[in-house]
């Protein structure tokens, strides 16, 4: 009984870690640099980034489920062609649904909806994860990875939008503290339109990557420091013990 609950708990944990890994530790954009084309092209605002992310959530989860369902049926030789067919089918479905139910999103994403087919993230998850794991695991993996992708797109979209227009997303402006008072500041004074253009995408992603690199490196350094200190401490203790022993033996002989 106890054993089974423990087992269940462990299984729950693996599901959870499988879900969470896409957000930070294995983030598709910031760690693996997958799907850079949409990450650069449709992130000029928070809104389009979120829309793109949700389409990828849909396609990646479903394609992972289907790939995992038929993993034993398809011969090894034609694995990659069948994955391409599956993914392209789901992308066509998504394309039609977006056109019907969210025409503004369809307009603003343009050719990047059909280009979900060649997004490295989806093909990569199909070959490296869904083709080897159970259906539930693959679904969770797809959902987590795609949500991590969405969060990254939203982060980039948010930074670009706030730098270019001062809005925090969906065209909402926070009131400036001194607006209309003594200095008459306005957002128009701080707009950097370059960030809404093509160059801004490269710059913002580059800066975020450097920030995450710096965080990762400082963590690494701290870890190494801790380890070094621990080793030194152990060494000192051992030396102390040796000396004590030597003293004792010297005392004994004397």
């Amino acid at each position: 009984m106890v054993q089974s609950t423990a087992k269940k708990k462990k299984a729950g944990n693996t599901y959870l870690t499988n879900f969470v890994k896409g957000f930070i530790r294995e983030n598709p954009i910031f760690v693996f640099l997958l799907g850079m084309c949409p990450a650069l092209a449709v992130t000029d605002s928070l809104e389009t980034g979120l829309g793109m992310g949700l389409l990828v959530v849909f396609v990646l989860t479903l394609s992972n489920i289907v790939v995992s369902l038929i993993k034993n049926l398809i011969p090894d030789e034609i694995r990659i062609p069948s994955y391409i067919v599956i993914i392209a089918t789901f992308v066509t479905i998504v394309e039609m649904l977006t056109e019907a139910f969210a025409p503004p999103l369809y307009e603003s994403l343009g050719i990047f909806i059909p280009l979900i087919v060649v997004n490295c993230l989806i093909m990569g998850r199909a070959t490296s994860f869904a083709s080897k794991n159970t259906v539930l695991m693959s679904a969770i993996d797809g959902l987590g990875m795609a949500l991590g992708f969405t969060v990254a797109l939203m982060l980039i979209g948010f930074s670009r939008e706030i730098l270019a227009t001062g809005a925090i997303g969906y065209g909402i402006y926070l009131p400036l503290p001194v607006e209309g008072s003594l200095f008459n500041l306005s957002y128009a004074l701080f707009n950097m339109e370059v960030f809404v253009g093509p160059a801004g995408g490269f710059l913002v992603i580059g800066i975020w990557l450097a920030v995450f690199n710096a965080i990762g490196q400082s963590k690494q350094r701290k870890k190494e420091e801790d380890r070094r200190r621990w080793i030194e401490k152990k060494k000192r203790e051992a030396a102390e013990r040796k000396r004590k022993k030597a003293m004792e033996s010297a005392g004994g002989s004397a």
């Binding site: 990659i80 490295c120 093909m123 070959t127």
Partner: peptide
Amino acid sequence: EETCASCTNYSCGI
């Protein structure tokens, strides 16, 4: 071939 076809940039370049 498999890794390349599955993901251009990560597997084969970076």
